[in-house]
C-alpha cells in the first residue's frame, strides 16, 4: 500500500509540474500552409482516382461476381471434404478399442492429446490448409512424441504441433510454444518447421524452438548440427550452428550469438550447468526455471558465470551465486536483484 502511495505521488507531482498550457509560435502560418497543402494534394488524388477508376469500378464489380462464384464453388468443395472426413470418422469405431487401449497406456507416460480435424484452422500456415491435420497438444505436462519419420519431439507445457496427413512424403509441421526437436536424418526429405511468421529448415539435427505468443523474441537454440532459419519466410536463410542461439522478433530483427544452448533445454532434462555462461543468460534461465522475476545489473550482465544449479532450489542457487561471485543478491517485493562490480 505504501508503495502504491509513492507511485501516485510521483505521478501527481509530474502531472502538476507538466505545463500543458497553449504554446504560441510564429510558425503557425507555415504549418497551416503545409497542412492545407497536404489536404489539397489528397483531394486532388482522390478526384483523379475517381476519374481514372471508372473502368476499374466496372472491372471490380465483374470481379466481385467471379469471386462470388468462386466462394460458392469452394463452399461446395469444402462440404464434400467434410463429408469424406465424416465417413473416415465413421469407420473409426472398428479400431477404437485398440486405440483406446493404446491411449490409456500412453497416458501413463504423459501422452499427448491427439486430434484429427478438418484443417480449416486459421492459424495454420498456408501450405497446410487443405489436408486433414493431426494436432498434438502437450497441455500441462511435458510430453514426448515420435513422428512417423522417426524424429523425436519433446513438447514443453502448453505447446502444440500440427502436421499434415502426408507427413511422410513432405516433412513439415507448424508449432506453438516450446519444443525440443531431435530430427531423424534424411537428406532427401528436408524437414520444415513453421512458427510465428518464420520458417526453419533442417536435415537432421537437435535444437530447441521457443515460440511463446507473449514473448517478443522467438528463440532457436541449437545443440547439435546446423539449422537454417528463414525469418518472415524470406528467401535468404540464416545458419545457426551447435552452441549458437538466434532470436527473432516480429519485424525479423535478429540477435544471434554463442550460447550455452544445452542449458536452454533444462526444462526437458532438468540440467542447469553453467560454464562461462553470460550472466544475462543465467538470469533468463533462472527466471524461467524458478518462475521468478529477476533484475540484473547492467554492468554485470555481460560477465560470465560457472556453476551447477541442477536440482538446486532458488535459495540454494542464490547462495552458490553469492559465494562464487561476490555479487549482491537481494529480494525486494518478490523480485530478485543481482548486482555487483562489472568485469573486464
Amino acid at each position: 500500500m505504501k508503495e502504491l502511495g509513492k507511485t501516485d505521488s510521483f505521478k501527481d507531482r509530474i502531472k502538476n509540474k507538466m505545463d500543458d498550457s497553449p504554446v504560441y509560435k510564429d510558425s503557425e502560418d507555415a504549418l497551416w500552409s503545409k497542412v492545407i497543402g497536404d489536404i489539397e494534394e489528397d483531394e486532388a488524388k482522390e478526384k483523379s482516382l475517381f476519374k481514372k477508376n471508372h473502368p476499374i469500378i466496372w472491372y471490380a464489380s465483374a470481379a466481385a461476381v467471379v469471386m462470388g462464384l468462386l466462394i460458392g464453388m469452394l463452399y461446395w468443395k469444402e462440404k464434400q471434404n467434410t463429408e469424406v472426413l465424416a465417413s473416415i470418422k465413421q469407420q473409426q469405431p472398428k479400431t477404437s478399442q485398440i486405440i483406446e487401449k493404446k491411449k490409456t497406456e500412453i497416458n501413463i507416460i504423459n501422452s499427448p492429446t491427439q486430434e484429427v480435424k478438418a484443417s480449416a484452422k486459421s492459424d495454420a500456415p498456408n501450405n497446410i490448409k487443405t489436408d486433414p491435420v493431426l494436432q498434438i497438444l502437450s497441455e500441462d505436462k511435458i510430453t514426448e512424441y515420435d513422428l512417423p519419420d522417426g524424429s523425436h519431439l519433446t513438447l514443453n507445457r502448453s505447446a502444440s504441433i500440427e502436421l499434415k496427413d502426408n507427413f511422410k512424403k513432405e516433412r513439415s509441421l507448424s508449432m506453438q510454444g516450446e519444443i525440443y526437436f531431435e530430427v531423424e536424418p534424411d537428406k532427401s526429405h528436408p524437414f520444415n518447421i513453421y512458427f510465428d511468421n518464420h520458417r526453419l529448415l533442417v536435415v537432421g539435427t537437435k535444437f530447441n524452438v521457443r515460440n511463446i505468443k507473449e514473448e517478443i523474441f522467438k528463440e532457436i537454440s541449437v545443440t547439435e548440427g546446423i539449422v537454417k532459419v528463414f525469418p518472415n519466410n524470406q528467401k535468404k536463410g540464416i545458419e545457426v550452428k551447435a552452441g549458437e542461439q538466434l532470436k527473432l522478433n516480429q519485424e525479423g530483427t535478429i540477435e544471434s550469438g554463442k550460447a550455452d544452448s544445452y542449458n536452454f533445454i533444462f526444462w526437458k532434462d532438468g540440467i542447469l550447468d553453467f560454464k562461462n555462461s553470460s550472466m544475462k543468460n543465467v538470469a533468463v534461465l533462472m527466471s524461467r526455471r524458478y518462475n521468478q522475476k529477476i533484475n540484473i545489473g547492467h554492468s554485470i550482465s555481460r560477465c560470465t558465470f560457472t556453476g551447477d544449479f541442477t536440482q538446486l532450489s532458488l535459495d540454494e542457487a542464490i547462495e552458490i551465486l553469492k559465494i562464487t561471485t561476490s555479487y549482491k543478491v537481494e529480494k525486494r517485493k518478490n523480485e530478485i536483484y543481482i548486482s555487483g562490480e562489472g568485469c573486464k
Binding site: 509513492k6 505521488s9 510521483f10 507531482r13 509530474i14 509540474k17 507538466m18 505545463d19 514473448e215 517478443i216 523474441f217 532470436k247 522478433n249 516480429q250 519485424e251 530483427t253 544475462k280 538470469a283 533468463v284 527466471s287 524461467r288 521468478q292 522475476k293 529477476i294 533484475n295 540484473i296 545489473g297 547492467h298 554492468s299 550482465s301 536483484y337 548486482s339
Partner: peptide
C-alpha cells in the same frame, strides 16, 4: 517496439536503486 525486452528479466543500472524520493520534481522548472 524494439525498445522492449524479452522474458522475465530486466537489466537495470545499479545507481537507480536506493535513490531517495526527494523533492526533485518540485524543484525543476516546467
Amino acid at each position: 517496439k524494439k525498445d522492449y525486452q524479452l522474458d522475465n528479466i530486466e537489466t537495470y543500472d545499479e545507481d537507480d536503486l536506493g535513490i531517495e524520493e526527494a523533492k526533485d520534481i518540485d524543484e525543476v522548472e516546467p
